[in-house]
Amino acid sequence: MVKFYDREFSSRLLIGTALYPSPKIMQDAIRASGSQIVTVSLRRESAGGKTGDAFWSLIRELDVTVLPNTAGCKTVREAVTTAKLARELFGTPWVKLEVIADNDTLQPDVVGLVEAATILIKDGFEVFPYCTDDLGVALRLVDAGCKVVMPWAAPIGSAKGIVNRDGLRLLRDRLPDITLVVDAGLGAPSHAAQALELGYDAVLLNTAIAKADDPVAMANAFRLGVEAGRTAYQAGLMEARDFASPSTPVVGTPFWHAVS
């Protein structure tokens, strides 16, 4: 089981709800992923519009826990207000906190992130901060009261997989009691498996599933990748080494010592 604040879940795959070819495929992909937590956003509704209601009824049919995000927020003020709107709208203290520094890379503004997290936690929120793999930032987020930290693997939607493996490993080593989620940049189920093999508690992704040729099949593949990675972590992976070590026994090799 994986713990997010005071709640426990069996699935270690958190999934986004955007970019699918159709609402039906979104629902089928989420079901195939086995995810119990889905991310959603908040957007302006135009007059007479019912887009929000239609989307919300699709999500409610899935019987999943909702994690609202503050995607697109560039300032602490925007992010804090968006989080409060999410709490009002979804009735949850959870928020995936994003404060974005740069439009092209969607790199988190880690200074603003720590500030916004501090404000929100004092106000009773349970914050899931989207951050980089910087240990100093992660420590500040934990100091602020975050019990979940979500470093990126690579920029959002880039599908590059884990760019800074050593950085992610260091976070795991230094924050053994924090729920760590690799959020963003994963492109393949093998990337998700690598995150779990490093001891990460879960992964969060969207684009790699939603933009696959067959999102439902890919959701299933990611489910299996996460399970494989977690099982491997629990089984205990061997350390890499520089020289070969024969797996076949040497003693009794035919003609052994026969050549002078």
Binding site: V40, S41, R43, E45, T51, L89
Partner: peptide, 10 residues
């Protein structure tokens, strides 16, 4: 005034 509804998100 901001009028906000749920929407798809990652």
């Amino acid at each position: 005034i901001e009028i906000i509804t749920p929407r798809q998100g990652g």
